[in-house]
């Protein structure tokens, strides 16, 4: 179990750091509650409209369930895209990156391990979203098929993380103003079906939306959790996510290797 020692050390350190800011820790869960309440009322307003029910038929017809899953799981998009670059920049700004880099722990290990807490905390946040939704606002997960949803989630994390590693490479060289995360995050939220189904977009925009992994992730997760869809029903989404990961993961690792070498050459590894 020695290979888990370093990731576990990062997890413990980040947990201790997070809970040392107690008020902020609690506040994050309060903000989830208010977000759920807000979308509950928006859903009440829209819920009865036939056009809304029609557009959401394949997901069960409830806008509240649709949007809650969209918002909750799009957190993984944000964390996958941003957590690697945020971790690097955080350690650079705190001054701890150099101290870590002189240890016999590789930079890839440092960056992957330092992002774990963000993913775990996001999972907790998503759980709280669903919990509030189910306990207080009638989110119906009784027919949920959890296993395909978990597989889709795992593939989502890999796909988004590959893009996040490319984004971190950018931060390593240019320090700020990373356009990759911004473009992907904005476009994914706009076109990926977080707040509304992509079926309401004009045809040409729908075509573009299929370029983003979030479109497949949210479709698979919604179908599994709200309609109890099995692997067969979400297979096309899972295959798209696998193809996306196979293409982007090696590219992201190559880009990252180049960025580290360049930063070591420039001497800018710990600058911010």
């Amino acid at each position: 179990m020695l290979f888990l020692r370093k990731p576990m050390a990062f997890l413990k350190k980040d947990f201790l750091m997070e809970v040392s800011y107690r008020f902020s820790f609690v506040l994050q869960f309060a903000s989830i509650f208010f977000s759920v309440v807000m979308f509950y009322f928006v859903a009440k307003l829209l819920g009865e409209a036939p056009s809304v029910q029609n557009a959401l038929r394949q997901y069960g017809g409830s806008y509240f369930s649709f949007v809650l899953i969209g918002i909750a799981f799009s957190n993984f998009l944000s964390v996958g895209l941003g957590s690697f670059s945020t971790s690097i920049r955080g350690e650079q700004m705190m001054g701890t990156l150099e101290a870590m880099l002189v240890t016999p722990t590789g930079l890839s290990n440092i960056i992957l391990s330092s992002s774990q807490w963000n993913f775990m905390f996001t999972s907790l946040r998503v759980g709280v979203y669903l919990l509030f939704g189910a306990l207080l606002f009638g989110l119906d997960l009784s027919s949920a098929n959890v296993l395909p949803a978990l597989v889709a989630l795992a593939l989502t994390v890999i796909a988004f993380s590959s893009l996040g590693i490319i984004s971190a490479s950018f931060i390593m060289i240019f320090k700020r103003g990373d356009p990759i995360a911004w473009v992907l995050s904005t476009s994914s939220t706009l076109l990926g079906g977080v707040y509304y189904p992509i079926s309401i977009l004009p045809g040409w925009l729908q075509g573009i939306s299929y370029l983003f992994p979030i479109t497949y992730s949210l479709d698979a997760i919604r179908l599994s959790l709200l309609q109890g869809a099995g692997f067969l029903a979400v297979g096309h989404d899972l295959i798209a996510l696998i193809v996306f990961s196979i293409v982007t993961l090696p590219v992201s690792l190559l880009v990252f290797r180049y960025a580290v070498r360049r930063a070591k050459k420039d001497g800018s590894l710990s600058y911010y």
Partner: peptide, 12 residues
């Protein structure tokens, strides 16, 4: 020190 000990490859 516990955190950096892990990074230096020391077992628990």
């Amino acid at each position: 020190l516990k955190f950096f000990a892990a990074l230096y490859g020391l077992s628990a």
